[in-house]
Design a protein around this nucleic acid. Sequence first.
RNA 1: GGUCCCAUCGUCUAGUGGUUAGGACGCUGGCCUCUCACGCCGGAAACCGGGGUUCAAACCCCCGUGGGACUACCA
Length: 467
Amino acid sequence: MTAKIRTRFAPSPTGYLHIGGARTALFSWLFARHNGGEFVLRIEDTDQQRSTDESTKAILDAMSWMGLNWDEGPHFQAQRVDLHRQMVQKLLEEGKAYICTCTPEELEIKRKEALATGKKPKYDGACREKGLKKSPGSVVRFRGTDTGVTVVEDLIKGNIVFNNEELDDLIIERGDGYPTYNFAVVIDDAMMNISHVIRGDDHVNNTPRQILMYQALGFEVPKFAHVPMILGSDKTRLSKRHGATSVMAYKEMGYLPEALVNYLVRLSWSHGDQEIFSQKELIEFFSLDAVGKSPAVFNPDKLLWLNAHYIKEASPARLAEEMKPLWPAGADGSDESFIRKIIVDLQPRAKTLVELAQASEFYFAVEISYEAEAAQKFLTPEVAAHLKSIAAAIPGIEDYSKAGLEAFLKNFIEANGIKFKTIAQPLRVALTGKTVSPGIDEVMVTLGKDRVAQRINAAVDYIAKQH
RNA sequence: GGUCCCAUCGUCUAGUGGUUAGGACGCUGGCCUCUCACGCCGGAAACCGGGGUUCAAACCCCCGUGGGACUACCA
């Protein structure tokens, strides 16, 4: 029997959850779920300077919002330093690591020199054979090998071969006594029995050194899968310059989590020609075999399209819930059936929840303010009489439904010998103040008899005043 | 500079030796129509270049070119 599949997401709490990190987390989560394995969350907070509790919370919130639930954790790496130090000690005792007293300044000078003379800017091994003892500010380095090769058997990229001589003697314990990332990550992944390390491919160059450490420590080497990065429109690493990169920023802009998830999963992953995936389908279909090797450019337009799709598909009840904090200031959200109708009217037209909220303003308005051009063009004396009689007839309509209203309007134009076009826009402006809105009948049903009659009469008054 | 990775429409991608190179976003023509959306129908749009291998290469190999990552006492 093979060991249980365990994946992890290990963000460092130095900011918000980034789109790229979220996609990596999503793949990791899907892989675990698809295989009936476990997904663990570990916060890599060994950088005491930059890590904050606020960031940790923000990352957890974003994960939850996206529905990426974890089975274990969050573990905090900083709480495990005793363990890390024990392992450092073990390597030291076995001669697989050594003390180094080179200062960052010295190293920086050597690096620059090497670069200037066209040599490799790697650690020169100055302290390697000195057999130094621990001293204030000294660091511990992992002793590498100068011969042989290390091959990374990557589940996405295939085998990658590294010459060991290219690999630095990495610092594994810093001057402040804290472990460095490359060491802590190995210890933690090994001790947490992570079977598959799924992470961004910016880590591939670290992997051979990590493999050497697994071996030095006598740990089993996990499987690796390095997922390609997400790039901005100019094909450089996605950053703020390309727009919002924080997951929660998309929530605030009115995106549904399933839209973001669906969008992100299709970056470097595909399942034939399918574009729309439910979470269930994702878990069913996801496979690392179908993850591509090349980086993907983040395309906000497609994400927006997916969001519009999911808004259309969402149940009005669900949207009513999502919309609660978003309605325009002063809007009365207590009338549930009114809210529901507004949502149904606007659903096919809104690309984001924020857009839906903006488009809803006229429904709630106590008094309609007309767009100047709209009023000038459509609220004219010619249509005043028609509007007046429609307003007068509203209370008497028995079947006040979309169908009933259609019949009423049809009847009305025929009786008056006019085209529907003659009164459509004037009615729209009277009811909404704008020339663009959901269908007249839909708006009338949603607004209800009283508001409709009142608004049309207000328009009639307006016309009288203007002319 | 060194090491490593990558390369099909503008973008996300399907494709694993023989296809009219398919789908999606965006763009665009039309239909629907009370406006705007939605929806439907149609269109333009790609195999980075050069060498091989082969009867046959988008697919395999090599070399270029281009892009990216890493090269910290960050993760």
